[in-house]
């Protein structure tokens, strides 16, 4: 908490420093938009460095978590710098409006990402095991195969009930993908329904069948854990589908914006 306050204070200080510098620059009859504009451009490039750092984890440039913190607070600083650069006004021109919208999208997606990054990991049920999003598909596939094998290996007395259960319920559960929104809003609802089904069948099978159902129950729990991890990890990744493309779009427009400014400024100080 203390660290967060310190970082926030530093950010506020930097914003105040920029505002003061811009005020001095403006009152000295210079065009302050050059000053805060270049500060903004340099800050955006610095934000890109975080992405580069994440792609090069082996390089000794500090921990990614530290970079993440710097990225976050630099983002807050750039929001203020952008407001100063636009003189706290809505844009009027087409190019400026596009830039403004993209920056706004970038900021909002970044803030959403910051929120999700802080809140979502704690909601991911790990139960001691954490599976990367990229490995969840294969893990789900493996669970489905194991469930398949278990159902087939059940004793003859139990095979009818378990086979029916598998055919009617378990196969679909293990081979289908959960609805992301439903899984997010009502986590483990599907698993609880399966558990109830298993409970209903359990009384009609022998000891061997009960052992099989116990194993299947464990597989259902495992699948539910994977589903929950999948949904939350997916959300942690999906916001980047807005943030990063918006970054690219904004970079393109920023380059055009700078070129236009210098073409039309006639060397203003």
């Amino acid at each position: 908490m203390r660290r967060m306050v310190r970082h926030a204070a530093l950010t506020v200080l930097a914003i105040a420093g920029l505002y003061g510098l811009v005020w001095l620059h403006d009152t000295a009859l210079r065009d302050a938009r050059f000053l805060d504009g270049w500060v903004l451009a340099a800050g955006c490039l610095a934000q890109l460095a975080f992405s580069v750092r994440r792609k090069l984890p082996l390089l000794p440039f500090g921990r990614v978590a530290v970079w993440m913190q710097a990225h976050l607070y630099m983002g807050y600083f750039l929001v203020a710098a952008f407001a100063i650069h636009t003189q706290f006004e809505w844009p009027d021109g087409v190019l400026e409006t596009a830039l403004w919208l993209l920056f706004t999208v970038l900021v909002l997606s970044g803030m959403l990402g910051a929120y999700l990054t802080r809140t979502m990991p704690s909601q991911i049920p790990s139960d001691g095991a954490h599976t990367q999003l990229e490995d969840i598909y294969s893990a789900q596939f493996a669970l489905a195969r194991r469930a398949d094998e278990l159902a087939l290996s059940a004793g003859r007395a139990a095979s009818v009930s378990i086979s029916e259960l598998y055919a009617n319920t378990l196969h679909g559960f293990f081979n289908a993908q959960r609805n992301v929104l439903a899984q997010l809003l009502w986590p483990s609802a599907s698993a609880r329904r399966i558990y109830a089904e298993i409970d209903g069948v359990e009384a009609h099978v022998d000891t061997g069948g009960q052992k099989t159902l116990t194993s299947i129950r464990q597989l259902v729990g495992e699948r539910d854990r994977l589903d929950n991890q999948y949904v939350r990890q997916l959300i942690l990744k999906v916001w980047l589908f807005i943030h990063i493309p918006a970054t690219y779009g904004m970079l393109v427009l920023s380059v055009v914006h700078i070129a236009v400014v210098y073409a039309f400024s006639a060397g203003a100080p």
Partner: peptide
């Protein structure tokens, strides 16, 4: 993969912008 899809979307966004 998500990363690849994100890269593609980003590239197309830049191209679309230009």
């Amino acid at each position: 993969s998500l990363r690849a899809a994100r890269g593609a979307v980003s590239a197309w966004t830049a191209i679309l912008t230009v």
